[in-house]
Amino acid sequence: MLLVSILRKKQSTELKPFSAGIEIKYTRLLMGTVVEITLGGDNEQVIKDAAAAGFDEIARLEKLLSHYQDTSDVSMINKFGWEKPVKVSQETMDVIDASERVSEMTNGAFDITMGVLGRVWHFTKDDKGEFIPPSEDDVKKLLPLVDYRRIIIDRDSSTVKFAKDGMRINLGGIAKGYIVAKAVDAIKKKGVKSGIVHAGGDMFVFQEDGNAPRKIGIQHPRKKDRVIGTVEIANGAVSTSGDYERFFIKNSIRYHHIINTKTGFPAVGTQAVTIVANDGMIADAISTAVFIMGTEDGMKFIEDLPEVEGLIIDANGNITVSSGLKGRLSLISEIVF
């Protein structure tokens, strides 16, 4: 979660002054989280129509990409992909294709086939299971099914198939960033030129060139409703992966939803990662990958990527910032973890 505050109502509006006229915030419950669309302009009806278009696009794409939706492309792949090629939408193909590229870049730290581990790990009521850690034996039985290289993609026919029976995918580490960016595209088509779309840990800021950047709060991973600092964003995506959103504690151990694809257990050594990039989908996937990679390897990876910056908070609360982000980041002088 990125902004300092988030409204807990299913749908609401908030009107406040804006440099170009007015700024209106709309909220709606989608993708298992509160989605905020904040838009600026001088015509309230245009803003309202644009927000509706953004929410409609989010709802449409959620129906394609969520494994919680029984008829989604992802659910169809998981049900039938082991026996035959499954026809999917261009949007689903684009996300899976990008997922494979990030998997290759990160040597498998990011891998959508970790979805099979959802059979033994449960972090929300929608997962329909107990909030208890599985046995090592149960996890080890599933690890041979975690391998992005065993996804068979036919781009010409827009089909996806698994090379091995029992495989499953989960686009949770990349789809939300993609959907948020697509919502921005839908909003822009309605004539709105400035705003923020915010969904859980993913955000996209957009405005006309020359406007002052927005200051975006980065949430404290251990103190709800507090921030560790702010980052200035004029145009682009901000994605945060943290161990504090979906987790349970058992025997004083925190078990969270960001799974190390090599061990099958929650990644250790990191509390949160924030990535700033031009592409929302890539920012989302990289924040997940870097969380798993850890501070040393993760920061080296960030520094090697063009137009990508990041911040990593390790298990002890130490903060490491990429070279290109330091001039845009303001940290609170005394941060207590």
Rank of each mutant, 00 (worst) to 15 (best):
T27W: 02
L311I: 08
G32P: 06
K48I: 00
V308N: 05
T13Y: 03
K250T: 00
A163F: 02
A289V: 06
Q45Y: 07
A285M: 05
F291E: 11
P266K: 05
L329G: 07
N316R: 15
Q271E: 07
I253R: 07
I169Q: 02
H256P: 06
E14P: 00
F291M: 06
I152P: 03
P266L: 06
V35E: 04
P213M: 10
V35A: 00
T27H: 11
A289S: 12
I187S: 11
V35F: 08
K87Q: 05
F18S: 07
K161S: 12
A59G: 01
H122C: 06
T38L: 11
F131Q: 11
V321R: 00
P213I: 09
K223D: 05
P85K: 05
G172D: 03
Q11M: 03
I22V: 06
W82G: 04
I259A: 05
K164D: 02
A186N: 08
P221W: 07
L142V: 04
L61T: 15
H67I: 00
V273F: 08
K84I: 11
V86M: 07
A98L: 11
A109V: 02
N318Y: 12
V88Q: 08
V184A: 09
E334V: 12
L305G: 02
P85L: 06
P17N: 05
H122P: 00
L30A: 02
L3M: 08
D127P: 09
L39W: 11
D185A: 14
D202V: 05
S194F: 10
R246Q: 13
G191N: 03
D49E: 13
S135A: 08
D42F: 12
Q207Y: 04
A186P: 02
L61S: 13
D94C: 06
A277R: 09
K140Q: 14
F301G: 08
R246N: 14
V86E: 01
D154E: 01
S330Q: 10
Q69V: 02
R214E: 08
G236Q: 14
V276L: 05
D185E: 15
P306H: 01
K182P: 07
V34E: 03
I216P: 13
V205C: 14
H67R: 14
A234R: 15
P266I: 10
P17Y: 10
G200S: 06
E245S: 11
M281C: 07
H257E: 06
V192A: 04
T33Y: 07
S19L: 09
A183T: 05
F80S: 12
L171E: 01
P144T: 09
K190Q: 05
E232S: 15
G32Y: 10
